[in-house]
Design a protein around this nucleic acid. Sequence first.
DNA 1: CTGTTAGCGCGTTCAT
DNA 2: ATGAACGCGCTAACAG
Lengths: 337, 337
Amino acid sequence: MNGRVKLSDISKKTGLNVSTVSRALSNPERVSEETRLLVQEVAAQLGYVGNAAARNLILGKTDTIMVLIPTFPGQPISPVFTEVLRGICEEAESHGLSVMLQQNLSQAVSSDDATKFLRTGTVDGVLLLAAEKWTSHHAFRPKEHVLPVISVLNDLTSYGLVSVVAEEKQAFSEIVDHLAARGHRHFAFVSGPRETIHEQIRFQATTSHLKRLGLLADLVRLEGGPFDLQSGKRAAQAFLKLRTRPTAVICCSDSLAFGFLHEVQNAGLKVPADVAIAGYDGLDYTAFTTPALTTSSQPSSEMGCVAVRMLGDIWNKKILNPTLAALAPSLLVRQST
Amino acid sequence: MNGRVKLSDISKKTGLNVSTVSRALSNPERVSEETRLLVQEVAAQLGYVGNAAARNLILGKTDTIMVLIPTFPGQPISPVFTEVLRGICEEAESHGLSVMLQQNLSQAVSSDDATKFLRTGTVDGVLLLAAEKWTSHHAFRPKEHVLPVISVLNDLTSYGLVSVVAEEKQAFSEIVDHLAARGHRHFAFVSGPRETIHEQIRFQATTSHLKRLGLLADLVRLEGGPFDLQSGKRAAQAFLKLRTRPTAVICCSDSLAFGFLHEVQNAGLKVPADVAIAGYDGLDYTAFTTPALTTSSQPSSEMGCVAVRMLGDIWNKKILNPTLAALAPSLLVRQST
DNA sequence: CTGTTAGCGCGTTCAT
DNA sequence: ATGAACGCGCTAACAG
């Protein structure tokens, strides 16, 4: 390709052998002081940059990880994904790893998706963000050799994947506790998409904790839909039609909470006097609604960091089985409750 | 590496030569119907996936583009970047391209950053998001051969880079027109970071258009700071201390507008009765503030698409000079004005 | 239409 | 400490 300078170029210019030049650049200690400096100087002078493809080919690795992010048509990407991605990039960079990104259209990763990036063979590991299912492809186990795959945000250990998630159960228990301590006895839960793992875990955590407190009888479940502002608005419309309205509303996500807040305020309700609202995610804008939203903050970028570290552990054979890492959330009590 | 199945494996199993197998897989039309089917079947059966490194090495290209996104410590990534990124990924996928992501810590891309990813040599082109400067590195021009670099969001044609941007000038003129039509005569501008291209263009567009309308005399410039909610809040605090307050506030970004809105409402002002507020970006949550924010929507994902397409044009020699593509924004008039 | 040959750029054996 | 030779897996010439 083109006139890119290569090892042989700097070999000619120095009179040294190509392999010596190679050593001087990758294993400087295995070469004399003198030649090392010479090579380094000429390399810099010529603007040598190396060829990753050749290096990858002979080394059998690429030092690259693939990140799969689900996207939904017409919907912006969740800030949670963005933050996880940031954590991944930071940690990857500190380990000298590159990050490849692929956005896939459905939340469920199928074997087809798997094939798509495997066909490239350019990565040493895969990070799956918020995948609901995982159909392991035959290409992943050619001869007992598998490409490491880690699930982030969703617990897919049952599919045999190392997973790193947030302690959502704890988060929603804390929210319930907080609301109960404020004196609330009648609750509503604004649901996200029923089929998602998140919805199931969060609703389950809420009901089981309410039950523990003897308050379950009064839980109203409001259908939201997708994790977006519009869904929160719809749920609020249903809420407003209720004969007896709960005094505390727990939303499955911050976007739902914001949409909900917007709509009940439009209808003239006072928050938190008429109804208290809590969300989940810890998006930055929740601190700037009026009133500011109580929410539980996900350890988003931390999950990204941890996932990259665990990938390293898999490469180093320190992790051998589908392990689960669960990171703690932190409750942010604000004016909406 | 490992026990990955390669061309030679399927060559043995079929009795065909390696190159025939290669052809059957990459140029199916240059091989007999019979062998093609045989090869494809055996390939599928063995779970052949190919080795990108080898392919890249011989082809001299990687079909991969690098995206550089600026990040700021302790600050979430702008949704605008995320949307641009989405556009890039979608368009890239439709062209069979992969996307590598690197987040760099400063807004200004220096030669060091350039070197970092060039050292990999794994990409065929670079997309620079919101870079303020560009120090072209010698590695970019080894022998009249350069790696194509496109600037997205910022016009860096003066650095010799093909650039794709939003028509910010138009956007802010439209905002001014809208506000003037509403009867406003006293304006404030909430500034973002003074050193950024965006702040300069947007402020300049606002003042020059106000001047055109004969309204410039009354413009108050409020210092915001970083493009975030907190800065908008600070600007609002300054605004509240003004002896005579402007009736219309134009914010350099939606986050500033939201923070501003939050704070003036806290102080008891009515929006838009006491003060009208407009932002810029078109973030989804602006439709759900109370009142909903008037804003001008950036063609974010479109910019990503266009950038990828232009990269293709550069590869095909259809673009030879630093071209500028400017995409139109769309004004969203809502209740805050 | 298929087999043969050669080589992409680099790292790592072997020798020396 | 350095040089020579080999091979990573694949594709593109060139024959046949």
